[in-house]
């Protein structure tokens, strides 16, 4: 019964206290917008921080994991830490020779079907529970924000390859992307550190004329 309970973000209480409006899609709750829709879109292009922790995640590990994923029609990346897109949106990352991390799109169609089939599979693979918080840092000044919190120079990092490093002293995975022609960095962080990381990065964003944005400007289905 993976979808019996609505998945909520570890920083939901924080965003609620700031007046964010929430909407449930695909079994998860998302903060739709923090300011007006137009303001959020402008902030997204300049420097925005968006909470996407509601996105469903799945880990698959074992010698049969690659064969099993390809048998389900998924393209899997060949290099360690490289990623590719899931058919209906979302991302799959190779974490090792026989380990993959998947994050679905907002509608949670791919992982829902996969998880059901994985639970009944008898081969050499196991499900790995992933409950990371997902934060998307977007905009032309996102590199400046990262430079204040992290020891990696992301100007030299290949796009769509995960970097495991520390942000504000907390271990996390960072996935460089491009969103609406501006750079974007997806942060996967342990949920127990989510509030601290969010507050720290949000404060840096504000100092660089950016701020928090709702998921409505990333996924228009939420509006």
């Amino acid at each position: 019964m993976p979808n019996a309970v609505t998945r909520s973000s570890p920083i939901q209480h924080l965003l609620e206290s700031r007046g964010a409006k929430f909407r449930d899609v695909g079994g998860s709750s998302y903060a739709v917008h923090t300011d007006s829709e137009e303001d959020d879109l402008r902030t997204l292009e300049r420097l925005g921080l968006c909470d996407l922790s509601g996105l469903h995640k799945l880990g698959v590990k074992g010698p049969d994991s690659e064969t099993w994923l390809t048998s389900k029609g998924l393209d899997v990346p060949s290099d360690v830490f490289a990623s590719c897109s899931l058919p209906n949106g979302g991302t799959i990352v190779r974490l090792g020779a026989g380990e993959f991390f998947l994050e679905d799109d907002i509608n949670n169609t791919t992982l829902l079907a996969l998880a059901d089939r994985l639970d009944t599979h008898k081969g050499k693979l196991v499900r790995v529970e992933h409950q990371e918080a997902t934060f998307l840092l977007t905009g032309r000044r996102s590199l400046e924000a990262l430079a204040q919190t992290c020891g990696i120079n992301f100007r030299e990092v290949t796009s769509r390859k995960v970097v495991f490093t520390r942000v504000a002293g907390v271990s996390c995975g960072i996935h460089p992307e491009t969103f609406r022609e501006v750079p974007a960095y997806r942060l996967w962080v342990d949920p127990s550190y989510a509030v601290y990381v969010w507050e720290t990065v949000a404060e840096i964003c504000q100092s660089l004329d950016g701020g928090e944005i709702g998921a409505g400007c990333i996924y228009f289905e939420l509006l």
Binding site: V80, G151, I152, V163, F164, T165, R166, S171
Partner: peptide, 17 residues
């Protein structure tokens, strides 16, 4: 200067990691 260690998987990283 920052001390750098080369991880065989992740490459050069600061000691704090």
């Amino acid at each position: 200067i920052m001390k750098i260690i080369t991880c065989p998987i992740n490459g050069p990283r600061p000691l704090q990691e």
